[in-house]
């Protein structure tokens, strides 16, 4: 029942939208009705899904790259107070700098469009992973740390058996945030990089359609991107629950 509530709300909102467009006879180039958007999607679904696939490739690649590099960097920063004090401010700068402003330089320096998009999406996604994982690495139970020391654990044993599991819930929390950021980063990068043609992503197609005042098609792209972000979040949430189900308070138990 609880799961149906958002769905019911959405359907009612769509019905109201459809009705308003018909009653006031709003032209499609100003505001398309949900029906027109669905039709636009039906007409070009193959084309739009191909665009979605391009966007998804960049998003997923950037997220995976951010997960590994972010966790690795967090681990390095956690190993040395000096390294953290020296480098963490730059991670913050990376986070607060709007990627739109870096995009022109990356586009000049890198010729491969996929790589340009990947770099920009990666930059958008990495910070929550670094900062959350670092927090997790520092939150390892001090008594357990003492115990590992008493038993003469090597650095590697401490890292794999104590620090990594302690940081896992925090890392997964970061990953859930970064999933959405990777998608946003990809979309912004596509719009700024101005990709076009058959290999262009969904965001480029959205922009093209809006230039041609094909608002129904543009909104179909928009709806598809929203749905993608939602699915990405749900997948990462499920992953988190699955990995933590036995022991962490955040994981739901049946």
């Amino acid at each position: 029942m609880k799961r149906l509530l958002p769905l019911a709300f959405g359907l009612i909102a769509l019905a109201a939208w459809e009705a308003a467009i018909r009653i006031y006879q709003v032209p499609e180039y100003i505001m398309p009705s949900p029906r027109a958007i669905a039709q636009a999607f039906g007409k070009d679904s193959g084309d739009l899904l191909a665009g979605l696939l391009v966007t998804l490739e960049v998003t997923v690649a950037a997220l995976v790259l951010a997960a590994f590099t972010g966790a690795g960097l967090a681990f390095l920063l956690s190993q040395s107070k000096l390294a953290e004090q020296t480098l963490f401010p730059y991670a913050i700068i990376l986070q607060v700098t709007p990627i739109v402003t870096i995009a022109p330089f990356i586009i000049i320096w890198v010729s491969n469009v996929f790589v340009v998009l990947l770099i920009l999406a990666w930059m958008a996604a990495i910070f929550p992973i670094i900062s959350n994982t670092l927090l997790g690495l520092k939150s390892a139970d001090p008594n357990l740390r003492d115990l590992f020391r008493l038993y003469g654990a090597s650095r590697w044993q401490t890292a794999t058996r104590l620090l990594a599991p302690s940081a896992l819930p925090y890392f997964l929390g970061g990953l859930r945030i970064s999933g959405g950021l990777a998608l946003i980063g990809t979309v912004v990068a596509e719009m700024v990089a101005g990709t076009s043609g058959a290999r262009s992503g969904l965001a480029s197609r959205l922009l093209e359609a809006s230039y041609r005042l094909e608002l129904a098609r543009a909104m179909a792209c928009f709806a598809l991107l929203s749905a993608t972000g939602l699915v990405l979040y749900l997948l990462l949430d499920a992953l988190s629950n699955r990995l933590l189900q036995h022991w962490h308070e955040s994981a739901r138990t049946e």
Partner: peptide, 29 residues
């Protein structure tokens, strides 16, 4: 581990590991 054992005021178990894995930790380390 064969020299010293330590019991803290808190059980200080690893929440992500089963009881057997927790108890076996000193042996593996």
């Amino acid at each position: 581990p064969s020299g010293i054992g330590f019991v803290f005021q808190d059980p200080t178990l690893m929440p992500w590991a089963t009881v057997a894995d927790n108890v076996g930790l000193p042996l593996r380390i």
